[in-house]
């Protein structure tokens, strides 16, 4: 193929601003190499174990004077902590591409949103 003469393009009009999201990826990518060490993994597991122990402890009478609302709150907080620890460390999301994080968070947020609204419409809270 030969070179074709062409009239210069009006760049400002035609070239769209580069997409920030994709641009970031390559740069951010290096982070992926920071694999946590086995020691860190064990530490996370210990934290998870401790959180679970805390959770289970609420089952026994001693904490019930807190009242249901506080108990729910405490359990939810512990659950979310455990969830985040596993996702961030074991599933490596803390160190991985932002795209993956967005996909997963989108799934969680959508699920939380629609199902909480659904259950609220059913008025199951406080029942």
């Amino acid at each position: 193929m030969t070179q074709t003469p062409s009239v210069p393009t009006e760049a400002a009009e035609d070239v769209q601003p580069a997409d920030a999201e994709t641009e970031d990826v390559a740069a951010e990518h290096d982070a992926e190499h920071e694999h946590p060490s086995d020691r860190q993994y064990v530490k996370v597991a210990l934290i998870l174990g401790a959180l679970t122990a805390l959770e289970v402890a609420t089952y026994f009478e001693s904490v019930h004077h807190l009242g249901d609302a506080a108990l729910y709150a405490l359990l939810v907080v512990l659950m979310v902590l455990k969830f985040i620890y596993v996702v961030a460390w074991f599933m490596h999301l803390k160190f991985d591409s932002v795209i993956l994080r967005r996909i997963f968070v989108a799934g969680i947020v959508l699920a939380l949103g629609v199902y909480l609204v659904m259950l609220t419409a059913f008025r199951i809270w406080g029942a």
Partner: peptide
């Protein structure tokens, strides 16, 4: 996995309901 969130979400919500 993102998709599975909605799957298990629905199952958990169904259970709670």
């Amino acid at each position: 996995l993102g998709s599975e969130c909605l799957l298990f979400g629905a199952l958990i919500a169904t259970y709670m309901f």
